[in-house]
């Protein structure tokens, strides 16, 4: 990777982090998802009367081998290891959507795209810089959300049940392989859409109305995978990573300056 590409990545990231209102919104929504929702769940579990929900039956229906002695701890473990990982497939995509949707068309509207195209970087290199900038942002937001979630869930578990529940192996796979790979696919497609779009609104609508529902549908299917097998998850992660790299390599093959500036 050329050092000049880092200049674009740094500039794009600074553009979003120096816009305090935008950046706080970007952080707030993932934090609500990863902190607020598990908190509500743990509190409901703690305060709801035992007989109102037959959780034991629910647990028996699920394909989980090892259950904790404490029912509440088992339920929290279920949420932590089977439900919350799905959020971490959605959070990075959500965090990167705005930035990646405006990546090219935003520059075009501000009349800075032509200046960037006069640089000694090829179109592919500019494209990859844009994708990487959004990807780094998404991974940063994802990491912050994970740390916050883990701290809050563990603290609340300790307070309500007196015990601890640790994240299992699947978390590592999700955070290191599956989530980055799916995010990279989404970001590459959204940035590509941005290069084709005529206005920022056009790019955002494309990303939100066309791409996101499809991606979220795919992501939601992962809940089932989480219950089945770690190896399937690993295989899926590798497939997604390969697809992401292929997309990143091939995405700008048919693009020319003339098309971008139109």
């Amino acid at each position: 990777m050329k050092s000049q590409m880092f200049a674009i990545i740094k500039k794009d990231l600074q553009g979003i982090t120096t816009n305090k209102r935008m950046f706080s919104t970007l952080l707030a929504v993932p934090l609500v998802l990863s902190v607020f929702i598990p908190t509500v769940f743990i509190l409901v579990l703690h305060f709801a009367p035992d007989e109102s929900v037959n959780l034991q039956k629910l647990l028996e229906m699920l394909p989980i081998n090892e259950l904790e002695e404490d029912l509440s701890l088992s339920i929290i473990g279920l949420v932590l290891n089977y439900i919350l990982p799905i959020f971490f497939l959605i959070i990075p995509i959500m965090a990167a959507t705005v930035m990646s949707a405006t990546s090219f068309v935003g520059e075009k509207e501000k009349q800075t795209l032509e200046t960037l195209l006069y640089s000694p970087l090829s179109l592919k290199e500019i494209f990859r810089s844009k994708v990487l900038a959004s990807f780094l942002l998404s991974m940063f937001v994802s990491a912050i959300s994970f740390v916050a979630m883990l701290l809050v869930v563990e603290a609340e578990t300790k307070l309500t049940t007196g015990g601890f529940i640790l994240p299992d192996m699947k978390w590592a796979l999700i955070l290191i392989l599956v989530s980055p790979a799916i995010s990279l696919i989404a970001i590459t497609l959204i940035v590509r859409g941005s290069a084709k779009a005529q206005s920022v609104e056009d790019a955002q609508q494309r990303a939100v109305f066309l791409l996101l529902p499809v991606l979220l549908l795919l992501v939601s299917q992962f809940t089932g995978v989480l219950f089945v097998n770690v190896w399937i998850l690993l295989a899926l992660g590798i497939v997604c990573a390969l697809l992401a790299l292929w997309l990143l390599r091939k995405s700008m093959d048919d693009f020319q300056y003339e098309v971008l500036l139109k």
């Binding site: 050092s3 000049q4 009349q111 800075t112 032509e114 960037l116 640089s119």
Partner: peptide, 25 residues
């Protein structure tokens, strides 16, 4: 230099020049 090759509004004069300098290596 063309009419449509503008620079970044949110950056200062010197920040813009440093950015383009970095892009040129």
């Amino acid at each position: 230099v063309t009419e449509h090759a503008q620079m970044y509004q949110n950056l200062t004069g010197i920040q813009n020049l440093v950015f383009y300098g970095s892009v040129f290596g």
